[in-house]
Simulated assay, not measured.
Amino acid sequence: MKKPARKKPAAKSPAGILEQMLNCVPSPVFAKDREHRFLYLNKAAADFLGHSNEKMIGKTDTDFFPEAQVRVFWEKDDEVFRSGAESINEEQLTDAAGVNHTIVTRKSVFKDGEGRDILIGVINDITAMRKAHSELSMFRKLLENSNDAIFIVNPRDGAFLDVNETACRRLGYPRETLLRMTVPDIEETAAGANGWADLKARILASDNLLIGGRHRRADASTFPVEVSVSKAEIDGKTYLLANARDITERKKMEEAMREVDTLRGLIPICAKCKKIRDDKGFWQKVETYLERHSNARFTHGLCKECMNELYGKETWFKEEGK
C-alpha cells in the first residue's frame, strides 16, 4: 500500500511573515501615512502606548496624545516626508495610563507597492536612563559644592581618580593636574618611601577612618586637615572615598583655648608692685607675663586717677580741665 502523501503546510504570505517578525522585535515599531494616520503598530508598540493595534489604526496622534507632543511628532514626520532623510529625535510621550516617557524616535520613509510614502518609526524608551542621568548630575552638583575637599582614590598607588572643585580650589591645582597626582603629593603624612604603604594599611584595616594630617598646596604652603576615609566595592574593585576638611580655624581656636587655660587658676602676684611670678620663680611685669603666655599685646596710657596724681598740681593741667 502506498502511504498517503503528506500535505505541505500552506505558505505564509511575505506580509504575514514580516508582521510575525516585527511582533518579535522588542522595540515599539509603527507606520504612518502622510496624513499622520497610523497604518501599523507591532505588539511592543501597542503594549508601550497602552492602546490596541485595532484602536489606533486609521487614527492620528491627536486622538491619543497631548497637543504639545503632537506638534513635535508631526513636525518631525513632515520633515522626514519632505527630505527623505532619516530623523532621530528625543521627545516626550504620555501613554494611555498618563505616564510620561522620554523617548528617542528614529524615523525614515519608504514607498510601498503602490508608490505611497510610508513613514516607519522605531521608539527607544530612555526614561530610566534620563532619570539616572539627572540623579547623577544632581549628585555631582552637590559634590562640587561641598565645603569639604573630596577625593576618590585608587588604593593600589594612591592615585586620584576623581576630585571635586573644592579640592582643586583649596590646593591650588587645576583638575587635570590633580588627576595626575597621588596622595603622597599633597599629604605630608603619606610622603616618604613607605608613607603611602603605611597609611594605606591603616585605611584598609578599617571600614571608616578619621585621620589628621597636613595638605600641601601648589605654592608649597601647608594647612591642617581632618580626613574621613571610607571604602567602596564596585564591580569587584576597591575604591577609597576621602573627605578632607580644612581645620585651620579650629586649630586657631584650640590654641586660643590653650592660652586661656594657661592663664586660669591661681597666679602669684605681688600685692605692692603687681608683678607676677612665673613658673621659674622670676617676677615679671603683668604685661610682660601676659604677652609671653597669650597673643595679647599692650599699649600704654594713663587712667584719670593716675593723671590727677601725676599732673594735678600743674597749671597747664588745671587749665585743660576747665
Rank of each mutant, 00 (worst) to 15 (best):
F81M: 05
A85L: 05
I88H: 06
I88P: 00
I88T: 10
E90W: 04
Q92E: 13
L93T: 08
T94F: 09
A96C: 04
A96M: 09
A97L: 01
G98I: 00
V99P: 02
I103G: 08
R106V: 15
K107L: 10
S108D: 04
G115A: 14
R116G: 06
I118Y: 12
I118D: 12
G121H: 15
D125H: 02
T127R: 07
M129A: 07
A132E: 15
H133W: 13
E135W: 10
E135F: 10
M138Y: 11
F139K: 14
F139I: 12
F139E: 08
R140G: 05
R140S: 09
N145Y: 02
S146W: 04
S146I: 03
S146K: 13
I150K: 12
V153R: 04
V153D: 02
N154E: 14
N154W: 09
P155E: 01
P155N: 09
P155R: 01
D157H: 08
G158E: 09
G158H: 05
F160C: 07
V163E: 07
N164L: 00
A167M: 08
C168R: 09
R169P: 06
R170Y: 06
R170A: 08
G172R: 11
Y173I: 11
T177V: 10
R180H: 14
T182P: 02
V183T: 07
D185P: 07
I186M: 12
T189A: 12
T189H: 13
T189M: 09
A191S: 07
A193Q: 08
G195N: 05
W196L: 00
A197W: 04
D198T: 09
L199V: 02
L199S: 00
K200D: 07
L204V: 00
L204I: 02
L204G: 04
L204D: 03
S206D: 03
D207N: 14
L209R: 03
I211D: 04
G212S: 05
G213W: 06
